[in-house]
Design a protein around this nucleic acid. Sequence first.
DNA 1: TATTGTTATACTCTATAACTATA
DNA 2: TATAGTTATAGAGTATAACAATA
Lengths: 158, 158
Amino acid sequence: MAEGDLPRASAADRARAMAELQGLTGFHISLANTMIKAHFHKNFGRLALTQKQIAILWLVQSCPGIIQVELARMLRVKRATMSAMIRLLTGRGLVARRALGGIDSRHVPLQLTREGDAVLDEARVAIDRHEAWVKQRYSQAERRMIAALMQKLYEDAG
Amino acid sequence: MAEGDLPRASAADRARAMAELQGLTGFHISLANTMIKAHFHKNFGRLALTQKQIAILWLVQSCPGIIQVELARMLRVKRATMSAMIRLLTGRGLVARRALGGIDSRHVPLQLTREGDAVLDEARVAIDRHEAWVKQRYSQAERRMIAALMQKLYEDAG
DNA sequence: TATTGTTATACTCTATAACTATA
DNA sequence: TATAGTTATAGAGTATAACAATA
């Protein structure tokens, strides 16, 4: 059996098939997301924080007293999912349930611990370097374009 | 304690914090990806196929004889990850390891089973409707823009 | 030595469903 | 009834590490 007769798809077949899938907008977004997460993890894995976890820490620091359902809405995840994430971060001593009581005791205001603040500071350095990598690929105009396009999808589509 | 004194971040605080996170390109892409996956799952969950699984079926159908490492490269996942995905799909009787032997016996050519073909046909209908939803949000020019922008990220960044 | 595939292990993210407590 | 949070359960996707078989 000659090389060309191997029961494997040729590079041309594969390129054609990829082109078909690339007709789907979500496919592009998914691959880009995969790559960007992989880059972050590969280069900043020593932080032991995912981008999602950093986003939560960030929001809690900027909005001390924020409650879980608000975080869930902002990050587009379910209530139960956010509960699990918060449990993980409180378990690691980065987030604390605030002792101060509001009027509605169903609300559990959150804040960063001292360690949470310190860890987020480290994370910001990593994020800056990660963003520098992104900026090598995109001009400011392109980044604004991506922001606007992606927002069209996630701002309304509830 | 008056309403305004509740230990909760205000809407303005939250908007400001979101704006900070939105300075990060990856944040937009991640949220858009979350929403698009959620829409697909919510509306076509009865298929019991994820978008990633459909992508694999699609590539195997278009490229009969394709092997795992090629699929892994095309979908930007690790060899071990693809192995797990293929095991799942073969376990469900949608993908078959082809009996025909190539020269290199390390290569295991894949193809769809009859059921795999049938299931993918169904999935294509779901995908078409999903894409229609996407197209309500984006013009053709915008979709081309997204494709080009996302490709810049995943084509080179290896 | 390099490639292909597998297995073991572990973790994150996600969902649904059912529950408690509170309003 | 509705809201906030939790728990239990399940499954997909991802990673690393080690291994076997083959080239």
